[in-house]
């Protein structure tokens, strides 16, 4: 087999994969979102804007995803800082493995763990009652705060890992020099550490935002009746109402939103998707 034969050997499966499983389905999604049983129409999109429940869920999902991303960043920064700059080099590898391990476990198992911890008959309620901290059991599950905590928990790793890798590349002598010149802690964080970590923060934030926006399990199992997530709306259209065209329109809107925010994030920080991916 010669050189160009090899080229076709590599190209064919890749083209089949990308064209049949990525391009074609999304074109189909786009086309079907403009169709109803009667034919072509904009009705599916009109429904979205005229029914407050739909666009309210959409806006809520977007806002909560942004809040979750920020919270994840706030929690992850000190963790990454401790692991790279404060822990002893010997423990570092061990801490990293410990950090990664829970995230290999299925998201469902993690959410289930939180459910048996937090619910009315759950482990935390039992402990608090035994310690006399509570008079009677409190339902800690099924509200927005718990849902956001769950979302932070499930997506934390994707923030910590890029942060650890950029902080590792930060030269300690820069921090030492600033310290010797009398910079305060806040000043060091603001002018040295955060600017250096920007690429890591961007890629972490994009991945976390994407995962939270497209999450279905956590809002579904930990959120309350009022914390409907947009993915649940899509699911309802597909499985409960069997209105696939409406569901396609919702799906396309969610895809547009996530692509938009990822694009803005990349533009603001001047990075490319390829760099973020690696």
């Amino acid at each position: 087999m010669n050189r160009s034969g090899l080229f076709w050997l590599f190209l064919t499966p890749v083209l089949l994969w990308l064209f049949l499983l990525i391009v074609l389905p999304h074109v189909d999604l786009f086309i079907l979102s403009f169709r109803t049983d009667e034919g072509w129409s904009l009705e599916n999109y009109a429904n979205f804007f005229t029914e407050p429940i739909y666009w309210l869920t959409f806006v809520r999902t977007a806002v909560y995803s942004i809040i979750t991303t920020l919270l994840t960043l706030v929690v992850s920064l000190p963790v990454a800082f401790y692991i790279t700059k404060l822990s002893r080099p010997r423990v570092r590898g061990f801490l990293m493995i410990l950090l990664l391990l829970p995230f290999w476990v299925s998201e469902l198992v993690r959410v289930y763990g939180w459910m048996i911890l937090l619910r009315e008959s759950g482990v935390l309620n039992y402990l608090f009652l035994q310690l006399g901290l509570l008079e009677r059991p409190v339902e800690m599950l099924y509200n927005d705060a718990t849902m956001i905590m769950g979302l932070v928990y499930t997506s934390m790793l994707f923030m910590v890992v890029p942060l650890v890798s950029v902080m590792e590349s930060l030269d300690d002598s820069l921090v030492e020099a600033a310290y010797d010149l009398g910079a305060s802690k806040i000043c060091i964080w603001r002018t040295i550490i955060i600017p250096h970590c920007k690429p890591g923060i961007t890629s972490g934030a994009i991945v976390v935002f994407m995962l939270v926006l497209g999450n279905y399990l956590t809002p579904n199992l930990m959120g309350g009746k009022n914390s409907l997530w947009f993915t649940e709306q899509i699911y309802n259209q597909f499985i409960a109402s069997f209105n696939w065209n409406q569901g396609a329109a919702f799906g396309f809107l969610l895809l547009a939103l996530s692509s938009c925010i990822v694009w803005v994030g990349l533009k603001l920080t001047g990075q490319k998707l390829g760099e973020v991916a690696s």
């Binding site: 890749v14 999304h26 994009i206 396609a248 991916a277």
Partner: peptide, 27 residues
């Protein structure tokens, strides 16, 4: 273009990937 397409699944939420494939398979 092909490289960009290869990276696309990273920014497509899993739910969307699922429904678009369901639709395409049905079509």
């Amino acid at each position: 273009v092909l490289y960009f397409l290869m990276l696309a699944p990273l920014v497509i939420p899993g739910v969307i990937l699922g429904i678009s494939q369901l639709l395409a398979a049905n079509t």
